[in-house]
């Protein structure tokens, strides 16, 4: 798993690449928490190069979404969700908890 974070005026773009499972999810969580700790709560997660995500990754997204949406201060959205991962998110009933976008710039511009 590899994470790169870019800070924009309206929000942060987090690109997560490779595989998120129980071994790597804690680092994914830390990357998302770090943004919140800096007082920023508008996050777009770019999944275009994500190969795999287990429920450990779903939990990280859920925890971050809760934190971002608290006091209506922000939101976490998903960008370019690969088909297999979208199917698993749907199975877990997670798709309705996150807005999705096809373009990272559009996602960040939405904030």
């Amino acid at each position: 798993m590899e994470i790169t974070t870019q800070e924009f005026k309206h929000g942060d773009l987090v690109a997560v690449k490779g595989r998120v499972d129980s071994a790597t999810a804690p680092d994914f969580t830390k990357a998302l928490e770090k943004i919140n700790e800096a007082g920023r709560f508008k996050i777009a997660v770019d999944m275009s190069e994500l190969e795999y995500m287990s429920s450990a990754g779903f939990r990280a997204l859920l925890a971050s979404q809760r934190n971002c949406k608290k006091y209506n201060r922000g939101e976490l959205v998903l960008v370019k969700v690969p088909e297999r991962i979208r199917e698993a998110l749907e199975l877990a009933g997670f798709t309705e908890l996150f807005k999705t976008f096809d373009d990272p710039i559009e996602a960040v511009g939405n904030f």
Partner: peptide, 24 residues
């Protein structure tokens, strides 16, 4: 089984892995 219709604030963090195993 986790409640998949629950609101964001009430979503269960646990039980999801087992639910996915059974579904898949």
């Amino acid at each position: 089984q986790p409640n998949l219709k629950a609101k964001l604030s009430e979503r269960q963090i646990g039980g999801l892995g087992v639910y996915l195993m059974r579904k898949l």
